[in-house]
Design a protein around this nucleic acid. Structure first.
Lengths: 148, 148
DNA sequence: TACAAATTGTTGCATATACAACTATTGCAG
DNA sequence: CTGCAATAGTTGTATATGCAACAATTTGTA
């Protein structure tokens, strides 16, 4: 017999549940900047990746392109993002505007408060461990080896 | 200096990302039973808790009651759940029907396959560790101490 | 008893998420 | 050059999620 602990319960259930709780937590903080945490994330990705094609962005975020299309709309409506023509007639380029950059900076302050509060709530060490596991899991599931 | 590792990046971002990936994974499997993993979860909760008030159910699932109200609708439409009058004129009772029970059982088989495949993909030990951390985090965030 | 406060759910609104089907364009094989 | 496969995004449809506002009811109290 080995002494490996078997996982109990449903990974997805636990993930969803914690995700809901944590999202609420962050949302409360970044609402201060007029953002939702999902919007802050997207905005941050665009800022980080610079002018980028939607497909590329979706790949980075591990998100369906159709989801991305729609998630960008509120940010475009607020004037934080601009979607322009790409080098291809079918392709596009997503760029953060000046106000977009400013909003991202503003959001970053609120985000940091949320993150620190969470660290306090859960314990910094536990959060660090969680990050390691999440990163490792994302990494492993990223490998395009889905043999159906 | 202490040797505690500081968490890098955003907990919410990582959680959401993994959540999307894992949800897709489970959805592929339970689609075989005509379910989404979220619906399987809800159905399972009702089966487990027996006839239960929506508010109670929402509390267990750490979900907004309005979300629950709507998430139940597809299951009611399929005839898997019944919402009847509670002992109070404002309250309700949620119950799984015969077909609901059957569907839950069917879903369970598909779920198990998904879970085993995930364990394989990520490593059983890693999943077990992840569960521990998720459970502990959910537990800690459950304490109603949100001092805004 | 009458009325304010608390309880229990639902609706309005906005956003997030993904699959399938679609449009438009580009590239390539013949 | 023609037509078909591959590529890039968007739309249709369905579900998930939460906050604010609401409706209905119960409870407690003056």
């Amino acid at each position: 017999m080995n002494d490996v602990i078997k996982p109990r319960g449903c990974t997805n259930l636990k993930l969803r549940q914690l995700n809901r709780m944590v999202t609420r937590h962050y949302d409360h903080y970044v609402a201060e900047a007029g953002l939702k945490i999902t919007q802050y994330s997207l905005l941050s990705y665009v800022v980080k990746l610079g002018p980028v094609r939607p497909g590329e962005l979706a790949k980075h975020m591990q998100m369906d392109t159709s989801t991305l299309t729609r998630n960008m709309q509120p940010l475009v409506a607020q004037g934080w993002l601009i979607i322009s023509a790409g080098h291809d007639a079918r392709s596009r380029l997503v760029t953060a505007t000046e106000t977009g950059y400013a909003k991202q900076t503003e959001g970053k302050l609120a985000w940091k408060k949320a993150q620190l509060a969470l660290n306090e709530r859960l314990g910094t060490e536990r959060v660090a461990e969680l990050h390691q596991l999440l990163d490792a899991s994302i990494e492993r599931l990223s490998d395009n080896k889905e043999e159906d």
